[in-house]
Amino acid sequence: MRKRRASSIIAPALRWIVTLAILLVFNSPILGTIITSFKTKADISSMPPKWIFHPVLEHYQNVLYAFGYDFPKFFQNSIVVSLGTSLLVLAVCLPAAYSIVRYDVGGGRPLIFVVSLRLLPVVVFTVPIFILFQYVRLLDTRIGLILMNSLVSLPIALLLLVGFIQDLPRAIEEAAMIDGASTPRLLWHIVLPLILPGLGAATMLTFVWTWNEYLLSLVLTLRKATTVTVGASLFVTAWEVQWGEIAAAITLSVIPTLIFVMLTQRHLIRAISFGFLK
C-alpha cells in the first residue's frame, strides 16, 4: 500500500519532468531567439553570453516603427493569406477527399497526382508562375499568394482527410442516406463533425505552413502583399545580419500562429472528448 502511494507521487512528478524537458529541448532555439530579441547589440556580441542583462525593447521598436518598413501591414498580409489558404484548401479538399474515398474515382490516381506535387521543388515553378501572375495581374496580391500556397498545402490536407474519412464507419452515412439526405448535406452535417480532429490537423498544418512559407512570398510580392517572413528577412542586409531585429520579428511572428494553434487545438480535443469516434 505504501509502495503504491509512493509511486503515485513519483510517476506524475517524473512525467512532469519529462514533459518539461521535452518542451525545453524542442523550444531551445525559440528561447534563444527570445533572449536575443531583448539584448542590446553589444550584449548579443559578448562572450561569455550574458544571462542577466538589462532587457531593451529597442529591437521591437525598430521592427514595428523604425526603418520605414510597414510591419503591421506585413502581419495583416500574413494573417489574410494564411487564413485564406486554410479555408480554400479545406473547401477544395473535403469534397475531393470524400469522393476519392467513397466513390473511388480514378482508382486512387487523383490522390497520387496531388501527393506527387509535394515532390516538386517550388523553385522550379517560380519563374513560370511569376510570368503567369504578371499576365493575369495576380502579382503582388494576397489572392495570388493564397492560390499558390494552396497548391503547396493541398497534398498534406488531402492525404490527411482521405486518411480520416477512410476511418469513418460507413454505417452512419448509410443511415443518413436512407433518411434521404443529399450528399452535400451529408458532408456538412455528418462527415464534417465526425472528422473534426482531421480537419483541425489539416487546417493547423496549412496555416502554419503558409505562415512560414518564404520562397513563393519572396518571388511573388513586391511591396503590397509582402508577408512577415519576407519582411523579417529584410533585416538580413547586404552586410551585417541585424540579429536583434530578426529575433524580435520572429518572436512577434510566432504569436499569431500560437494563438491559432491553441484555438484549433481546443477544437481537436473537444471533438475527441465528445467521443464521436468512441
Binding site: I22, L23, F26, N27, P29, I30, G32, T33, T36, M204, V208, W211, N212, E213, Y214, T229, A232, S233, V236, V241, W243, I246, A247, A249, I250, S253, V254, T257, L258, V261, M262, Q265
Partner: peptide, 17 residues
Amino acid sequence: SLFLLPMMVSPALLGVM
C-alpha cells in the same frame, strides 16, 4: 501548443538564428 511551437518559425528565419 507549446510543443508545436518549433514548427511555427519559418525555417528560413530559424536558419538565420
